[in-house]
Nucleic acid binder design. Structure first.
Lengths: 221, 221
DNA sequence: ACTCCGAATTGAACACGTTCGAAAAGGAGG
DNA sequence: CCTCCTTTTCGAACGTGTTCAATTCGGAGT
């Protein structure tokens, strides 16, 4: 897309919406690039004019899910709730949004985790998207009463995001109906995480927590 | 492989060793099934007679690495060392073994994480391999002095394995020369984990740790 | 109206993973 | 040596993601 302007933007969006629909309806593997192009009434070559790869379209799904997660979760957060409750809401909303795509969650994760492309939530390329995801947790932390200890307040959102990645991984492997086991996990883990945060005030614990925070910061280069 | 016996076992092994060599030398994507078959002087069809898929050969690599890790790490463990030191050895040995394959670590992880096939370290299919990996940590825990608190001793190896998965993930994304940043991470994280274990003795902490252990046990169905 | 140039589109072609029907190899029993 | 069966091997063929040279489209400048 050399020029930023064009009404062929419509074609692009059509391709995205078509792809996401097919992903939802027929899964990842059955949704071939040819099928997407055909359903959008363009040639396969055209699809590749807008998207470098099939993974690129998955990346589009990733961003779309993230936006939906954000816009659904934010209004549900009430100022003054405790951190555990807020976490529960954020995490449950998250897996709710991903629900329709659970069938190919494996492929999703598998692609998302590749450090190669822009797709990876860890790679530097998608730092923006990641920061946006973390900011949702930052919002939850900011709203929570009582406030988490100052010592970790700044780093807590990122830590919580890591935790949410772990839960997402669990969700991917969760074959229970409607992923009910993941919901149970969230209901247990959310207050637990909250308790851990409170615990970090203890003098003995505090030192170690500071070490951990240092460690995490170190990993950011 | 309907019959367990045959000297065509040799063909199978030849294919494995050829595949691993090509993986090491030319990376994952450039190592095509045709190339493996050709290098082993068989047809592509024959390769598929022994291995259901290319991922299946990656699984073979996974098992091979695990065995090498085990046989290198075990002799390095000295009875009576503290847990932090033992962890450091196990983890560093692990990334040492994986080192030659770092270039396609991304593909490796990406494939390994798929819940579909036998490849996934989380899936039920590779429960055996996973148990074997965890047993290495169990060994380290058993050798460590002082002994970890009884309350968590049984679950600790699995927890440590999870931690090692996280470190492996970091390693995959580590583009520093010789993955030196991962080594630094391990040198810091190992004693930290050890301290966390000690901390779990504290009465206040203990309760939460028990909750966490319950949580983990719950995830095992 | 005409020219021109980049944006957009096309469908054929390529390499790859994988499948498959058929052929070869091997060996046990007569 | 022949027969019959299983194991093993083969290479052509299929469907897929992706690339590319060629073509069409659309609008800016004259």
């Amino acid at each position: 897309m050399p020029s930023p302007t064009a009404k062929s933007e419509a074609t692009r969006e059509l391709l995205v919406s078509t792809a996401l629909r097919l992903f939802r309806e027929t899964g990842y593997e059955k949704t071939t690039m040819r099928a997407i192009a055909a359903a959008a009434d363009v040639s396969t070559g055209s699809a590749y004019y807008y998207f470098a790869s099939k993974d690129d379209l998955v990346h589009e799904l990733y961003r779309s899910l993230q936006e939906e997660h954000r816009s659904l979760a934010l209004p549900r957060l009430r100022e003054g709730q405790n951190l555990g409750e807020l976490l529960r809401i954020v995490l449950n909303t998250g897996i709710g949004v991903m629900g329709p795509y659970h069938d190919f969650g494996s492929n999703f994760i598998s692609i998302a985790i590749k450090p190669s492309a822009t797709t990876s939530p860890f790679g530097s390329e998608s730092a923006v998207a990641r920061a946006r995801a973390i900011s949702l947790f930052r919002q939850a932390v900011a709203m929570s009463r009582p406030q988490p200890p100052l010592a970790i307040r700044d780093d807590l959102p990122e830590l919580l995001w890591y935790a949410s990645m772990g839960i997402t991984l669990f969700w991917v492997y969760d074959s229970s109906p409607d992923q009910v086991r993941t919901r149970r996990l969230i209901d247990q883990a959310a207050p637990l995480l909250s308790k851990l945060v409170i615990l970090s005030r203890l003098p003995v614990v505090r030192k170690i927590v500071e070490d951990i925070v240092q460690l995490i910061r170190g990993t950011r280069q």
